[in-house]
Design a protein around this nucleic acid. Sequence first.
DNA 1: ATGTTTTTTTTGTATTACAATTGATAAAAC
DNA 2: GTTTTATCAATTGTAATACAAAAAAAACAT
Lengths: 236, 236
Amino acid sequence: MTNNFSSISTSSRSLHVQVARSIARRILSGELAQGSLVPNEMTLCEQFGVSRTALREAIKLLTSKGLLESRPKIGTKVVHRAYWNFLDAQIIEWMDGLSDPEVFCSQFLGLRRAVEPEACALAAIHATPEQRQELSEIFQEMVKVTENFNQAKWTEVDMSFHQVIFNSTNNDFYLPFGNILTTMFKTFIMHSSKEGDVCLNEHRLIYEAIMAGDSAKAKAVSLDHLQSAKHHLPET
Amino acid sequence: MTNNFSSISTSSRSLHVQVARSIARRILSGELAQGSLVPNEMTLCEQFGVSRTALREAIKLLTSKGLLESRPKIGTKVVHRAYWNFLDAQIIEWMDGLSDPEVFCSQFLGLRRAVEPEACALAAIHATPEQRQELSEIFQEMVKVTENFNQAKWTEVDMSFHQVIFNSTNNDFYLPFGNILTTMFKTFIMHSSKEGDVCLNEHRLIYEAIMAGDSAKAKAVSLDHLQSAKHHLPET
DNA sequence: ATGTTTTTTTTGTATTACAATTGATAAAAC
DNA sequence: GTTTTATCAATTGTAATACAAAAAAAACAT
């Protein structure tokens, strides 16, 4: 995690990403109907005031996420919603402001409740010594932050905690949930969480179960954590 | 699902997708190390014998999936594995032949066991009348195929069955699993499944529980289904 | 009517040129 | 000697133009 570029937001300044975001939001909001043709390249170039190069790179980006599909002579179509990859951090970011945050978060929780307890169970079994060490350090940090409470710091360390757990499953298919969860946090969940201490205890239970290699308990306490009150309403 | 273009494979003939696939496989296999710089654009253009246009569209596609990250003057880096989006059908396709299929399938099953039972539970509650109708028709088809057994037909209808269930959750975050499962089937799971009839009964239980709106039972029988023997080893 | 050829529209690919970013280097100021 | 500032150079970013390829639509022939 050390030698990656500063952050995703850096490249968001690039023109084709801005164009992609704009088109994506038209699709995600339903302004561009599923199955309909978007305007042809030259028209879009004029609409956005960019070159075909930039526009096409934008379209390729959206095609890769399952939103668009192009064919010569026909044009570019918005594909059916069932093919949109909502398990993609960038798409989740782009949903900001398009969907009722409460509904969206509650849907996400519907998936998270299925995935995260199992991730904890797997981490309890498969975490390497290095990963256990890392988790341990993060939990230490968590304790420290709680003693001298700081909202920003706590969100940061909370995200790291969950991310390390997903990594510790050592299962490729669980890895993406780390980013997805982080993105959901940053984009939608800005809840004030005054009950930092309560949370700490819940995290402690998860932490200890994983370190002890007790997968059943890890799963159970994680599920408890996700059913605690604060997950139900994202207080803006 | 009616008015999409013939299939994804059509566009795979396009040059930038071929290039993307080739680079992706070098990354996924580890031949291009995480954090390392890939050769600059002109070098890659020469290596692949394509124009910068095509090459850059390929890179944009891979960037969108979390495999690459570019910056002016610096170059293009392979990002850390934790950011690769394994929950992407195209990446899963590209893994073909790069990973031990048995390990890969077993990892996938590790996620599927978490997600699909919950999807069945949600479908039992949230499926619309139209979706219940669709599920019903597909199950009818399933019965018919079993009576006059045909491997290809059965795989087809099996995929549809599970896809409709994910759609019937009416939860955006469950939608992508339909494609992912289908892709896993097509790419890795070619098991002969002589026990088609046994499976039919398992599917019947799932089908009936969902139609009855019994979420707890739907979840339970789905989990049973996923723990039945044939899921453990993909017989090539 | 039906099959075949031509036309036309749209995306796909190539090429060239220049702009913007930024690390590295060198120069200047303190 | 250290720090700041300016310059340089390498790489990606953007633009513009031209032509190729695909495929639907139209025109044509049978």
